[in-house]
Design a binder for these strands. Structure first.
Lengths: 118, 118
DNA sequence: CGGAATCCAAATTGATACTG
DNA sequence: CAGTATCAATTTGGATTCCG
């Protein structure tokens, strides 16, 4: 079980999966454009991992300008309900969050203990 | 939206959340024991992040042997449907995965191109 | 018990440049 | 277009020691 969750680990995995949500087929450059901030390296790396984990499928069209399309595999599709639920959850995010996380990368070993006491 | 997803990023975040699933209240040591492989440092770190992101709540009981309990906040609770869906998804994981991921940590810039061609 | 602090190694990510 | 290659910068993770 932990193993399955590890498939989703990674800075861009979920974001990518959302792009492929519902059976969408997208080209490499489409994804690149659709995901601001991601680098080619990260995009291809995460895609490769998702691919080798069996969540994403890749199809190469040998044309003059190369064309490669990505999509969710069958198992990947079975993730949709979860992605959907996550989407709903994300919408209910506290307004603070929407802006805070942008600047400060996760963590930093910051601390501010006692939150509530009895 | 990307922001909300980042809240769940982290090697142990989801695992911890699953422990708090459904309104469970657990002590620090409970979590430590329930999550094999995690270190105190990681546990406290991830908990603090989840806390500052408003997903997890923390209550300190000033007793002789200290006692601290963690639980999902209201927003955290709203994540349950998603966790549930993930649980279901994870169960349908290909048998291969169940064992593969254990050894090889994610990535490593590994590559094996052409998966399927037209 | 429930951390905090430190040190340090390893993994992940990012920016940039280059290629078939 | 769809990557690959490299290198540097962050992050992450683990082990250990100490504290109220």
């Amino acid at each position: 079980m932990q193993n399955a969750l590890r498939v989703l680990e990674g800075r861009w995995k979920l974001v990518i999966l959302f792009q492929l949500f519902g059976g969408q087929v997208r080209r490499f450059s489409d994804l690149e454009r659709a995901i601001p901030g991601i680098s080619q390296k990260m995009l291809i790396q995460q895609l490769r991992q998702l691919e080798s984990d069996g969540v994403v499928g890749r199809i190469v069209h040998h044309q003059v300008p190369p064309k490669v399309e990505y999509h969710l595999t069958e198992w990947g599709q079975s993730l949709c309900p979860a992605l959907d639920a996550l989407l709903i959850w994300a919408e209910g995010a506290p307004a603070e969050l929407r802006s805070r996380l942008i600047q400060e990368g996760p963590d930093g070993d910051a601390q501010k203990p006692e939150t509530s006491v009895t």
